[in-house]
Design a protein around this nucleic acid. Structure first.
Lengths: 155, 155
DNA sequence: CGCATACAGGACTAAAATGGTCCCCAATGA
DNA sequence: TCATTGGGGACCATTTTAGTCCTGTATGCG
């Protein structure tokens, strides 16, 4: 499936909700009601987003959560990384290769490239895009493909 | 993490192994030894790949597994789908939207577009690419980003 | 025919990740 | 001082994942 976890999905929804009204802080229960998700779970998600530096929090009455920076500077990668850790498609996609199969698998290097391409793609999608009601249009799909294929076809 | 499951990873490794010697059939134990993974697990993976139509099998002595079509016509998406089901980043990324939050989440449409872009990217990576010892080069990363951003910045 | 080889299918178990809840503490502001 | 609101983490139930094993079936060969 290559699926995001539910919490990541929640995080995106909640972030989008905040992004639509960035001025004042949003309390956790308010957000939970707005997106129709269980309060404790939303709260948990918010805490993770704060720790990742995507949100800032204000305690006390009239407190709540706000975006740490403009929505256009928060990417899908950021949100995913906040909940699930850095985007990496395989164990050996991140630096500390604790995969003892290197040498036998002969696929690691290429998976890492694919992983990088996916990450780059997700870096290009910002919270501003996700939050806008009009769907983002991906007018051309093939260029992505051709970029990926370009050099490999020669190799 | 947006990570592939281990089985998917195994599948890719095993497929690559077969792709490097496409002529004769490969028995499950032989493959397991070659890639240094437990026999039963490799066997299970192979069965899934057969059911997905990516491999064909021959029973009896001298039997084993072969690619169902040329490595250049088997994509990363195919392999992932064979083990994990169709690539989709969120529940609502596939057609039968059993997500009752539509309307509140306001993110679904855009996630679907992102999902599609990732899938397209993975469609562009073939087993031939993965199997080759020389790493595939992704010379330009930014174009992927700019394609994604292009229309959305206008929207 | 009989037997060894090799895949097919699925049941089953153990371990890990996930999703979700709850509790107590700390900070803020009226 | 007290109500409000987030911070941190423990905790549990469920699901998913990984891995094993067993029984059946097809093929090829002597």
């Amino acid at each position: 499936m290559l699926k995001l976890s539910k919490l990541t999905d929640y995080a995106a929804v909640v972030m989008a909700q905040i992004a639509r009204h960035p001025e004042h802080p949003h309390a956790a229960p308010e957000l939970a009601d707005a997106v129709m998700l269980p309060h404790p779970t939303v709260s948990k998600t918010l805490k993770m987003l704060v720790r990742a530096g995507l949100l800032t929090s204000l305690r006390g009455s009239q407190g709540g959560y706000r975006l740490a920076r403009p929505a256009s500077q928060i990417t899908a990668s950021d949100i995913i990384a906040a909940i699930e850790g850095p985007v990496a498609m395989t164990e050996c996609s991140h630096a500390d290769g604790d995969c003892e199969l290197v040498g036998n698998c002969g696929v690691a290097d290429n998976w890492q490239r694919v992983s990088l391409a996916v990450r780059t793609l997700l870096d290009g999608v910002t919270l501003a895009h996700l939050a806008q009601s009009a769907p983002i249009k991906l007018p051309v799909q093939l260029p992505i493909q051709s970029v990926t294929l370009a050099a490999s076809a020669e190799g």
